[in-house]
């Protein structure tokens, strides 16, 4: 952090405003262009406001992409993945942090090594597995492969290890079971990290693309939000309807970001800096 003179401050505000425009204008232009009837855009120009607004592009995108159903599916899938990722990570993290068992280091290494096996590498066989189980175009198919995560296990274990020893010893002296230690002491004390992980898990699950794209062969009835918008491309719909759909599906996560920015940033930067 730095403190500057008035002239310098003005300069910084100018730079910050210009950079904000770089970030925001693409979305604004896309919004204006989605509303504008193509004929009004014929002669080019930047057009900061639409000459005419045809709001029905949004209802067209909603209807033709079946976005209502897709958003419901996306939320079911995302909430399920997030919930189970937090649960499985907390359980595994507790075992790695506080329980004795043989081959702990090896198993921990094997957990972390799954970071090297992202869905991009395993997608073909996972598609075959899911097809054999009859899970194509189903909630199970969209959810089950993502029920555990090495990142969550790692971050939450780190948080657990930071719980003060004296508290743990005191609780043990009082005869607390491991279950009580976990649910009543360790988890509540690690809430900031668990919250951060919950939010990046949610973002990641909601924004997933490759897997739902490959496992949803019936996008009309089983597409998640981004896949439903993708199906508008192949419909084929005009570009302004497609971008209207994209803006609709981006909206829920933007709200989430504004509400929980601090947690999301903490989750994204975990590992970048110490502490």
């Amino acid at each position: 952090m730095e403190t500057d003179s008035v002239a310098k401050k003005a300069g910084w505000y100018l730079l910050l405003t210009l950079l904000s425009l770089v970030v925001l204008l693409p979305v604004w232009f896309a919004f204006v262009r989605s509303l504008s009837p193509p004929i009004t855009l014929k002669d080019g120009g930047l057009q900061l406001l639409p000459q005419q607004a045809e709001w029905d592009v949004f209802s067209r995108a909603w209807r033709n992409g079946n976005l209502g159903g897709a958003l419901v599916r996306s939320f079911v899938v995302t909430i399920a993945i997030t919930f189970f990722q937090v649960v499985t990570s907390v359980l595994a993290a507790y075992a790695f942090a506080y329980l004795w068992f043989p081959f702990k280091r090896l198993l921990f290494a094997l957990f972390m090594a799954t970071l090297l096996l992202p869905i991009e590498v395993t997608v073909l066989q996972n598609l075959a597995t899911v097809s054999n189980l009859g899970w194509k175009n189903s909630y199970q198919g969209l959810i089950v492969p993502f029920l555990a995560t090495a990142l969550g296990t790692f971050l939450i274990r780190q948080a657990f290890l930071g719980v003060p020893r004296e508290l743990l010893d005191a609780a043990r002296l009082e005869g607390w079971s491991h279950w009580a230690l976990m649910t009543r002491l360790v988890v509540p004390l690690s809430r900031p990290v668990i919250a951060a992980f919950t939010l990046i898990s949610f973002l990641g699950a909601y924004n997933q693309y490759l897997w739902p794209r490959i496992v949803t062969t019936d996008p009309q009835n089983w597409g998640t939000a981004p896949i439903a918008v993708q199906s508008l491309v192949s419909n084929p719909e005009s570009a302004n309807v497609i971008v209207a759909g994209a803006l609709v599906i981006a909206f829920p996560v933007l709200v989430l970001l504004v509400l929980f920015q601090r947690h999301i940033v903490r989750g994204l930067t975990a590992g970048a800096v110490k502490g």
């Binding site: 970030v23 925001l24 693409p26 979305v27 896309a30 262009r33 989605s34 973002l203 909601y206 924004n207 693309y209 981004p226 918008v229 993708q230 491309v233 570009a239 302004n240 497609i242 971008v243 759909g245 994209a246 803006l247 599906i249 981006a250 996560v253 933007l254 989430l256 970001l257 920015q261 999301i264 940033v265 994204l268």
Partner: peptide, 17 residues
């Protein structure tokens, strides 16, 4: 920070137009 909420697919659709 806002574009961390924008997925790659949404970015693709935005630049499509």
């Amino acid at each position: 920070t806002s574009t961390v909420a924008t997925s790659a697919a949404v970015a693709g659709f935005i630049f499509l137009v």
